[in-house]
Amino acid sequence: MSDSIPEVEDVEIEIHGSNSEVLFGCPVSYSMGQTVIHPSRSHWLQVATNLLNDGYNMCVDLTAVDYLSNDTRELPEGIVLERFEVVASFVSHERAERLRARVQISGSDPTIDSLYEIYPGTDFLEREVYDMFGITFEGHPDLSRILMPEEWQGHPLRKDFDVGAIPVQFKYPQGEKYD
């Protein structure tokens, strides 16, 4: 056991070493020419605050993706792939720049800090993600369902939530059965 601890530390150093690019303290990747940062869940609020201070004055979009049945993700080294991802797009009006952040959120504990304090415009967007994915935003003033009825069970945009259909009642001739 004692041998394995230095190895883990080595990996840590590699991630944030000169080999991988770092922006706002997060690993960076580029998707179709768009800059994507990968903050960890625990640093999410801090990273968002830094983004605001750096001139990204608007959080235009916040959504989530359920990667339950998609194993094609290619993320920078050191990012632990989790089931959910919260994806937020920021825009800087001064520099006319966009930046996207993808935060990994585990399926067993789908919680993340709310951006409401920093970007109040995420109010409805976080409620929508909560409604559709069941991801809880801690610190949101009114985390309730926004599109689905209040008493609805389940979270429709999760991949294990079936596409809705009302079963059709067929009548078969007696003794016959179709598969």
Partner: peptide, 18 residues
């Protein structure tokens, strides 16, 4: 790990909503 910004530090935009 987190860069410390040099500009004036803003932590919340809630104050902009009177």
């Amino acid at each position: 790990m987190i860069d410390s910004p040099e500009k004036q530090v803003v932590t919340s935009q809630l104050g902009k909503l009177p």
